[in-house]
């Protein structure tokens, strides 16, 4: 079986979310599933579909620092995207590749990453609903939505993590315990660089994850491009949705 592999490089947050959305919108059951690897430039905070931007993000501070803020199509929490590889996976909901059951499908898709981490000499495991951990510390967060009869799952693979910087951009419910919260998160989150004690390149991680997806789905990932239709729709969605205050501040 062949999948399409998209390596779209580093883009701003609005483009990144618009590209995932366009792929998911136009995917047909007869098309090969798509795996996309990407990064964020500038760095960005993404918030979950059900979160309130005003309640979660220091949006003024982000603006001052040139950090994008965007609402995702998917649920879950706020994420600071900086030194990471982000992936997205799109297939038809009817596909036998993933279960109708949401928990099962998270497990299946996340197993691609678990296998990918193996190629980086890291022993990772899936923790329901949507995390991947190494030595009990989170190294990847994932989120899924099902729209247009397709499954879209995207997630992070942390190459390096800066918890202090992340919390300087996020609001917490109780300022008094922010320090304590930061310490807890530092103990619970890790990164590839941390675990390997060296700096990995984006390309090294994407190669490992490519192998992980291939092994997990017994498929070959063939490098492709966005179709003209996808690129055009992504531009439109970026302009009309993800870059709009009406979308980002909608809750």
């Amino acid at each position: 079986m062949e999948f399409r592999l998209l390596e779209t490089g580093f883009n701003d947050s609005f483009s990144n979310m618009a590209i995932d959305t366009a792929i998911n919108t136009l995917h047909k059951p007869e098309n090969p599933p798509t795996v996309r690897f990407y990064g964020w430039a500038p760095s960005a905070v993404s918030i979950g579909y059900f979160q309130s931007l005003k309640e979660e993000v220091e949006d003024e501070k982000c603006r001052e620092k040139g950090i994008d803020v965007v609402r995702r199509l998917t649920g879950g929490g706020a994420v600071f995207h900086e030194k990471e590889l982000t992936y997205s996976f799109v297939c038809s909901e009817k596909s036998e590749l993933v279960s109708k059951n949401i928990l099962e499908s998270y497990k299946k898709i996340c197993n691609s990453l678990v296998l990918g981490f193996k190629h980086l000499n890291l022993k990772a495991s899936f923790v329901p609903l949507n995390d991947i951990v190494v030595k009990n510390q989170k190294i990847s967060g994932n989120a899924q939505t099902r729209r247009n009869n397709n499954v879209l799952q995207h997630g992070t693979v942390l190459m390096e993590v800066d918890v202090d910087k992340m919390f300087s951009l996020l609001l917490v419910p109780d300022e008094k315990i922010k320090g304590k919260l930061i310490e807890t998160v530092k103990q619970r989150v890790t990164s590839i660089n941390n675990q390997l004690n060296r700096k990995v390149e984006f390309s090294e991680v994407s190669k490992a994850m490519k192998k992980g997806f291939e092994e997990n789905f017994n498929a070959e990932l063939i490098k492709g491009e966005l179709t003209a239709e996808e690129a055009k729709l992504a531009e439109k969605i970026k302009k009309e949705k993800f870059s709009q205050k009406g979308w980002n501040y909608k809750r």
Partner: peptide, 28 residues
């Protein structure tokens, strides 16, 4: 998960409620 509520009510009835948080709900 942590759920945040904004509520507007009158005479013990809900006028408006907004539920936000880092949960998942399908379809959204």
């Amino acid at each position: 998960k942590l759920v945040k509520i904004s509520l507007d009510f009158k005479e013990e009835k809900i006028n408006f409620v907004r539920i936000t948080g880092d949960f998942f709900l399908h379809p959204e």
